[in-house]
Design a protein around this nucleic acid. Structure first.
Lengths: 256, 256
DNA sequence: GACACACGTTCCGAATGACGCAACACAATG
DNA sequence: CATTGTGTTGCGTCATTCGGAACGTGTGTC
């Protein structure tokens, strides 16, 4: 889908987008837009009316001159936020993956699950699974625990009070126990996960902060239990915390 | 227009915008969007198809999951570019206007004319005219001359070669004479205009630079000839140049 | 393997929503 | 005042959009 050169499937939406693109090049009036697009000015008037009602188009000082509105900037925030994190995070993850030999991911919180948005594989990675875009349970992954730990208390309590699925016999599904663990995560600055999601899988994660200091993502390293032992986890945490702090700084976070 | 609570004038466009707003909160699949909007999934599929074909929506790693695309960021650039200059420039203009007692504007170049995007009035301002959004001729205004002076030579020559309108008997309409004056503007760093647009109106402008050092706007002070004499113009240029340099720095320009 | 389920895509006919036309309202100019 | 230019609104028509259903694909279970 999205590869069609043929007529747009919804012509009026296609036209509205053409209006936006025209206005992105500079403000214009209804008659001018109509001339550029080759449609009637009453059609343009209606299209612009909807776009303006929803904030995607606005009039500047001169009446009858329309320009791109702030509503577009708000929509764009979703893409730029993702791009910054993905684009800046990828080399950081790769450096760590090359250093540890394990897989390093960045995950964000969305609607009660963790979503992996970046992945870098180390040379020793035995798993071919691509985690990008995959949703994983917050309570049973190291990334998820980091994301949970730094949520506002009421939101955290709400998510933890939902029924928690068990993936292995080591999965923590007791809410009170999990909350206690999350308090420890918040104070020690990392979360570890030993075979809670999958037998033989160990992982550790640290927080990544946005420019306002809020935790926007978790960066995790994962590998098989025989390689990523509990002791090794403790050993790699400082390097991960440093890398995450670097990434946070790149995202605009100044701890000073 | 744009104040209607009633049914949207173009329902399909309104629906497409609702899709974008939903995706701005986080990625989603077709069935999920359909459920949220209360429309059939084939309708959503078609809307998303158009949005994707035009780059406003894209699929991340997981097939069937849609998110806001980079095309929205491109559209937003038109609004953010305008906002930075306007938002940061407004207090700078107001400070100058309070200091001089005259009206201070910022204008940008668009399609052969100067457009005022910011205005601050001083206490002595006698004119109630709101210049925001107004288009003024490049060759007959101080702002316009600054904008012309710093254009690439071929673009400047092209604009100057067009027929130049005369607004008063002092308006310079001879291309060669204007080019000579523009060379002087570029070397002295400001442009003055004495009754070329309107009898009794004097103005002086200085350049504002964007982060790459290019001149992106002109900041001007204007007032009646009896108050803004030629001598006073020379006196206020240093303060204006300093303020414009401040604004340029805020826009990311480092002269070093 | 078969089957069930879930998802996104595509075809189809019905109808309604979007279209262009024309009139209207408003502003600017001479 | 008349003229010109712009954006808005009402109207009838029909082309576009809609929802239903079938289809293709992927996943999970037995």
């Amino acid at each position: 889908m999205g590869n069609s050169d043929s007529a747009a499937q919804v012509q009026s939406v296609d036209r509205a987008i053409s209006v936006l693109e025209l206005l992105a090049q500079g403000e214009a009036g209804i008659t001018e837009i109509a001339g550029e697009l080759g449609v009637h000015k009453s059609t343009v008037s209606r299209l612009v009316s909807v776009l303006e009602a929803r904030g995607l188009v606005e009039q500047l000082g001169e009446r009858g001159k329309y320009a791109i509105g702030f509503g577009v900037v708000r929509l764009a925030g979703a893409a730029t936020g993702r791009m910054d994190l993905t684009k800046l995070g990828q080399p950081v993850c790769q450096t760590l993956a090359d250093s540890f030999g394990e897989t390093v991911n960045i995950a964000v919180h969305d609607a009660g699950v963790a979503i992996n948005i970046t992945q870098a594989r180390g040379s020793a990675a035995v798993s071919a699974v691509n985690w990008i875009g995959q949703r994983t349970p917050l309570h049973a992954t190291s990334s998820g625990k980091v994301l949970l730990a730094y949520l506002p208390a009421d939101e955290r309590a709400r998510l933890v009070s939902l029924p928690l699925d068990s993936y292995t016999e080591k999965t923590v599904v007791d809410g009170a126990q999990l909350l206690t663990e999350l308090d420890a995560v918040a104070s020690q600055g990392f979360a570890a996960c030993f075979e809670e999601l999958e037998l033989g899988l160990h992982a550790v994660a640290v927080p990544v902060r946005g420019h306002r200091g809020e935790v926007v993502a978790a960066m995790s390293a994962s590998g098989p239990s025989y390689r990523l032992s509990r002791q090794r986890v403790e050993e790699i945490v400082p390097a991960m915390s440093t890398a995450a702090a670097d990434l946070s700084a790149q995202l605009g976070y100044f701890a000073g």
